[in-house]
C-alpha cells in the first residue's frame, strides 16, 4: 500500500525535528553561574529605557546554562514587565553568551565575567530591535 501524502509529511516532520535534537556538552562548567543575579540594564535604541530586575540561572551542565530573566522596563511611555527564559553558553571563564526570549523575540546578551559580576551588551536580533548594555551582580549561591 502506498503511504498517504499526510503520513509522509508527518514522518518528514518528525525526522527533520529529530535531526535537530540537541546534543549535550558534558564536563565541568568553565565558570559557575547558577544562582540569582541582580540585573540592571539600559536600552539605547530605538528609544531609551532602563531595565531593572532579576536574572536567575537555575541549571548548568558543562558549557550550557539555563534560567530566566524578570525585569521592569521603564521608559518615557511608562513601565512594563518583561520576563523570559534564557539559554546560553559559557565558552570559558570570562565569556558568557545567552539569549532571553521575550514575547517570541530573542535578546542576545554577551558579557564578560568579572568575579561576581557580568558586564556586557545586548541586542535584539531584528531590524529596528533594541540594543543596550547590562550589568548583573550575583546575589547568592544556590
Amino acid at each position: 500500500m502506498r503511504p498517504r501524502p499526510v503520513d509522509t509529511l508527518l514522518m518528514s516532520v518528525v525526522l527533520a525535528i529529530a535531526a535537530c535534537a540537541s546534543g549535550t556538552e558534558p564536563g565541568p562548567p568553565p565558570v559557575p553561574l547558577v544562582g540569582e543575579w541582580s540585573y540592571e540594564g539600559t536600552q539605547t535604541s530605538p528609544h531609551s529605557a532602563t531595565l531593572d530586575g532579576t536574572l536567575e540561572v537555575d541549571r548548568q551542565s558543562g558549557q550550557r546554562f539555563e534560567g530566566s530573566l524578570d525585569v521592569i522596563e521603564s521608559a518615557a511611555g511608562g513601565g512594563r514587565r518583561l520576563t523570559g527564559l534564557l539559554s546560553g553558553l559559557a565558552f570559558d571563564a570570562q565569556t558568557v553568551d545567552f539569549d532571553v526570549t521575550i514575547d517570541g523575540i530573542a535578546r542576545r546578551h554577551v558579557a564578560e565575567v568579572r568575579g561576581d559580576s557580568l558586564v556586557g551588551t545586548w541586542a535584539e536580533v531584528s531590524v529596528g530591535g533594541g540594543t543596550g548594555a547590562f550589568h548583573a551582580v550575583r546575589q547568592g549561591a544556590p
Binding site: 535537530c20 535534537a21 540537541s22 546534543g23 549535550t24 539559554s87 539569549d99 530573542a106
Partner: peptide, 12 residues
C-alpha cells in the same frame, strides 16, 4: 522547537 546547543535557544 528543537535547537542544537549554540543556536541561542532552549534545546527542546
Amino acid at each position: 522547537e528543537q535547537s542544537r546547543v549554540g543556536s541561542g535557544y532552549e534545546p527542546r
